[in-house]
């Protein structure tokens, strides 16, 4: 049952079989969170360091709760500056953390690839909690779990991911995840927000949102960041909202039982209208609940057995 890997750095590296295994395990862990006593002793004595170089209440809290429900000790380290500013190399940082003998480092960083570099420097497990515009594997897993619960399957579903694909790690991880499990993924956004060669990740790409939404079973709306306006990736929020935002009228092309996911926090009235956000298709809160279960599953599968190199 164990994942034959030290780290979870991206969905790109995972096989469909591994994805299924993580999702199945996460389903079991949902029960633990539903209990009165939401704690199991499984990872007693293990130490998890949450190393966050980027502010993130949601993801950090979710990892922290997941670790604590498994009885692991979770330590949060928030770093406001990159190693360059501190005058310390990433290797120094890694070696210092490793000297504290953690079993797992959960890392969030605004620079793509930082978890990969860290994983090379430390012997313990590394979980990528979001790196730059690269990947956010636990988010994609919780999205997949949510969809699987609601739709009973992932294979054969039509998934539309709408918004700033270029800067979205959530989009990349979900493209990999959903396509690996047999869904058909279409990404859509302004041409300035569709990175070159995105189709090579296994999805279709279009700037026609309505085309992307046609017949969709799942819609994933990405958060739009205001500062992209300064880079001229879109002219105004008003125009963005009109052509790329999700509202009741655009939703008509999707399947009747379409579900809507959003990695949060929502810009109401921009990428998603309030009526849609509060509508019956929105699963934003299920996503949060599933986030804890998925992260417990990752901890269990990475840390729940003796290390490969352990003497038994």
């Amino acid at each position: 049952m164990r994942l034959k890997r030290k780290d979870i750095l991206g969905i790109e590296d995972l096989t469909p079989d591994e994805l299924e295994r993580i999702l199945a395990t996460a389903e079991s862990f949902k029960e633990v969170s539903a209990r009165e006593i939401k704690k199991v002793p499984t990872l007693r004595g293990k130490t998890v360091i949450n190393l966050f170089y980027e502010p993130s209440t949601r993801t950090r809290t979710s990892f922290e709760i997941a670790a604590k429900r498994m009885s692991a000790d979770a330590v949060n380290i928030s770093v406001s500056t990159s190693s360059v500013v501190k005058g310390e190399t990433l290797k120094d940082t890694a070696k210092n953390l490793e000297a504290m003998r953690p079993d797992c480092i959960v890392v969030r960083h605004s620079s793509s690839g930082t978890p990969h570099m860290l994983a090379k420097y430390v012997g313990c497990s590394v979980i990528n909690a979001g790196d730059g515009a690269h990947e956010h594997p636990s988010q994609a897993l919780l999205d997949m779990l949510t969809v699987k619960e609601k739709k009973g399957r992932i294979e054969g579903l039509k998934v539309a991911i709408i918004g700033d694909i270029t800067h979205s790690r959530v989009a990349r991880s979900n493209i990999y995840g959903f396509t690996k499990l047999g869904a058909e993924v279409t990404v859509a956004g302004p041409p300035t927000m569709l990175p070159p060669g995105i189709e090579n990740l296994g999805c279709k790409a279009t700037s026609d949102v309505e085309a992307a939404l046609k017949g969709a079973d799942v819609i994933m709306m990405l958060r739009i960041q205001l500062e992209r306006q300064k880079e001229s990736l879109f002219p105004t929020l008003r125009e963005y909202s009109r052509f790329y935002g999700l509202n009741e009228s655009k939703l008509k092309g999707a399947k009747d039982d379409v579900i809507i996911l959003h990695p949060g926090p929502i810009n109401r009235g921009v990428e998603i209208s309030s009526e849609v956000a509060d509508g019956p298709y929105s699963l934003i809160l299920d996503q949060v609940t599933n986030g804890v279960a998925v992260r417990m599953a990752l901890f269990y599968l990475l840390l729940g057995a003796a290390r490969e190199d352990a003497v038994v």
Partner: peptide
């Protein structure tokens, strides 16, 4: 370099 690899790696091209 801007291109498929940069897109995959989430790095600016």
């Amino acid at each position: 370099n801007e291109g498929v690899v940069a897109t995959r790696l989430g790095l600016k091209g």
